[in-house]
Structure formats: structure tokens, C-alpha cells
Amino acid sequence: MARFLTIGERIHVISPVIRKAMQERNPEPIIARAREQVEAGAHYLDVNIGPADRDGEELMPWAVKTLQEEFPDTPLCLDTANMKAIEAGIKVYDRKPGKPIINSADAGPRIEMINLAAEYDAMVIGLCAKEGIPRDNDERIMYCTEILERAMDAGLAPENILFDPLFVVVKGMQDKQQEVLEAVRQISEMGLLTTGGLSNVSNGCPKELRGLIEAVFCAMAIQCGLTSAIINPLDKLVIDVIKTADLIKERNLYADSYLEL
């Protein structure tokens, strides 16, 4: 069984430093954020350029090239709702370290991203959602199935899709946590791959609690079958929990120094 896949989330336009760097096409702050995540052990790096309606087709290829020149062994996850920007990014993407991941398709207005992934032999995150957060797991599984059907029609193999049941915030949606975990289980039982944004779970909680909440949720989700997550790799607790879960799941052979790898 393959090891748990981590996608580092810290190159995000919502961060003022990154937004400014993207506007000015200044590589340094972006490379610095990439480096700390790669060194912390992130497998993929998410590159969120926001909606980028105006200049996405130019910004995404610039970001892809900037990062791949510096980190040729790290694959990327291209993150924007702007399809043309994703396409432009994939066109310059060097797939030696691994296929690009498109972040993301859904069962609603962004379902075309599935076709894009098929066309360019990319992976794609499939949000089990149409408009906003799905009401319950019946909806989640319905959207999951819709995405899967679209993929079949487009000729995209299911192992190229990471299904995201949409993790929700514990502070305010406490009653939905078990349901999300159950969705992970149901999707996994179909033999499909899963992912989710861990920071969604701890959003709004005090800083000192966020890592703990994410780590515990992640461990519980892994037992339900979760195969990857979008995480803050600088949170050592989360990374250590994922590495330890890989041991317990027998995806990695134990050695005393396993956390150092």
C-alpha cells in the first residue's frame, strides 16, 4: 500500500506575503515558503493563486516554472477556479517528479476540471459538493458518483481522482464530524482515493489547539481510509502523526529513526 500523501498548503494567495509576491512576480517569498514545506516533508506543494480572473493564464505558468526550477523533485498541485490558468500551468509543468494535481473539480460548475485532467493526464481533487457544503452523506456520495461518471466518460482512471468529502470546522459544526469520517469510509470502501483540507477542521480555534485537533482528526480519518490530506507541513505534530499512522497501517517499515526520514 502506498504511503499517505501530504500536500503542503502554505503557498496561498490569502497570505499577504504570497499575494504581494504573486502580484509583483517576486519569486523569493514563494520559494522560501516552498522550501520550508519541502524540508518539513511535504510530498506535493499546493499553489493557490486565487480566482486570478485577470492574469491567471500568465501567473500560474510563472509560479509553476519558478517552483520547478528550484525544486525539480517536488510535484505541484495547481489551485485556482480559473480553468485557463490551470491549463496554462499544466502546459509548462515538468512531470518528472509526478503528475500535476488539479485543485479542484466538483459536481457543479467546476466539473469540467475532470475533462481537463483527462485531457492532460493529470490528477484532480474531486470535491463531493455542488453548491456549498453538502447537506449529508447521501449528497456527498451522489456527487462523488457524478464525478466518477464524468471521469469514466472522459477516460480518466479513478486512481487519478482524490475525492474530498469536505472537512468541516469543529468549532460550530461539531455534530458533523462523525458524518465526514463516515463519508471517508464510504468513499474508501468503493476503492477510491481520498483527501481533504485539514486546516478546515481547526479553523477559528486558538492557535495552540489547531495542530492537536488536526492531528487527531487526521489519525481518525486515516483509520477510515483517508489516503492523503492538504496540510500545514510545518506543524510537526501533524507530520509525526501521519508518519506514525503509516507505521501502524504497515505502509512503512519501522526503524527507531522513522520520524527523522
Partner: peptide, 14 residues
């Protein structure tokens, strides 16, 4: 010993 074999390889690499 499987785990010691891996551990020693890690230590040598380090």
C-alpha cells in the same frame, strides 16, 4: 533483524 537493518542504514546515511 528487519528493523535494525533499516535503522543501521539510516544511521550510516545520516
Amino acid at each position: 533483524d528487519l528493523n535494525l537493518a533499516k535503522q543501521l542504514n539510516i544511521l550510516v546515511t545520516q
